[in-house]
Amino acid sequence: MTYALICASHNDEILNANLARSPMITEGRVPLHLQRGATSAAVAYNRAIDTTDADILIFAHHDVYLPRGWEDLLTRRLREVAAHDPNWALYGPFGVGLDASHIGPVWSSSIGLIVGRVPTTPAEVQSYDEMVIVMRRSAGLRFDEALPGWHMYGTDIVTTARTCGLHAYAGALPTIHNDRYHDHLRDDFVQCYTAMRHKWRDHLPLRTPIIKISKSGLHLYKNRWQDYRSEKFRANMSVGINHAPEYLASICGWSDLTASA
C-alpha cells in the first residue's frame, strides 16, 4: 500500500507546530500534499484526490500530530479491516459507532482528555471527527462540493459510502489532536448542520462527534444551550495548544507506536 498525507491548511504556524513535525513527514516516509486557498474542505480534498495517485489517502487537519510508527500501525489496522470486510472504504482514529458510542483513542487538547473506547476489532461507524479520515482510493468516493465550509464532511462521506453499499470503520490508532478550545458552535457550523439536515433527511437521525442531526433540528438549539451552560467547565478542562505534540504523545504513552505495529 502506498500512502499520501493530505492537509488543507491556512496557517503555517499551526501546521509547522503539529502535523509537519510528525516523524513520517520529517523522515520522508510519507509525502505531505498541502492544499491552499480552497473554499471548502470538499474542494480541497477532491483536488488532492485528482493530483495524487497513492492507494491510501490520509486527510488530516494541520493541528494533528501522528506519533512515530503511526503509518506502520495504520498498515496493520487496514489489513485487519480488509480481512474483516473487503468492502471497506474509509477508516479513522475517531468515529461514532452505529450504536452512537465514541471509538478512539485520541488525545484532544481542547478538553484535556483521551477520548473514545478502544475496540478489539474494527468498529463500523456512522461518522468521523474530521481531524483524520483515511480513504481507500479504489472505493471511488469523492467529497460533496455542494456541502459548504469545513464541518460535517466526515459524516457526509461516511453516509455517502454507506448508501453505496460500502463501509466505514474506526479502530485503535492513537493520534494527537492539539486543538484549541471552542466556546460555542458558530454560524459556519450551523450552516453545515442545516445543509446536512436537508441533504440526508431520509437517513436521519445521524450522530456526529459533536451533535445529533435530527429531522426537527432541535438538537442544534439544545447543544447551543448546553455549550452556554458548560462554557466555564469546558474552558477549565482545556490544556491550551502551547504544549509540544511530542510531549503530549509521551504523556499518553504514544511516543513510539512501532511496537504496536
Rank of each mutant, 00 (worst) to 15 (best):
G97Q: 07
W70N: 07
F143H: 01
N236D: 15
A44I: 02
E71R: 13
E124S: 04
T155D: 00
S22E: 09
T258M: 12
S110Y: 10
A172N: 15
C192M: 05
L57E: 02
H61Y: 13
D227E: 14
D55L: 07
Y181V: 03
W88H: 00
D99Y: 11
S109L: 01
G253F: 10
T208K: 01
L66A: 11
V132E: 09
L173H: 02
R79A: 14
Y247D: 13
D99A: 06
L98E: 13
A139V: 12
I114F: 11
V190D: 09
K222Q: 10
L248S: 08
P67D: 00
A244T: 03
T121E: 10
D53T: 14
I111Q: 15
M196K: 03
V190N: 10
L185Q: 08
A100K: 08
T2M: 05
A235W: 07
L90A: 08
D53Q: 14
P245F: 10
P31Q: 05
T159A: 10
P67K: 04
L204W: 12
T194L: 15
L185C: 03
I14D: 09
P119L: 03
I103F: 14
H151Q: 06
L220N: 08
A168Q: 00
L66F: 03
K212H: 12
L257V: 02
D188I: 04
H184G: 13
G104W: 00
A235I: 01
F94Y: 11
T39D: 15
V158T: 05
V132W: 03
A60M: 04
W254S: 11
S9V: 01
P86V: 05
V64T: 07
S260C: 09
R77N: 03
R142T: 09
V106Y: 00
T52I: 08
Y65H: 07
D156I: 04
Y193I: 05
K222T: 15
S238M: 02
R229F: 08
R136D: 15
L73E: 12
G253Y: 08
H10F: 14
H62G: 15
A60E: 08
A89K: 07
V96G: 14
L257W: 07
M1A: 04
R234L: 13
D72C: 09
K232Q: 15
L57F: 07
A83N: 10
D129F: 14
H61I: 04
L248D: 04
L34T: 06
G149H: 05
K222S: 10
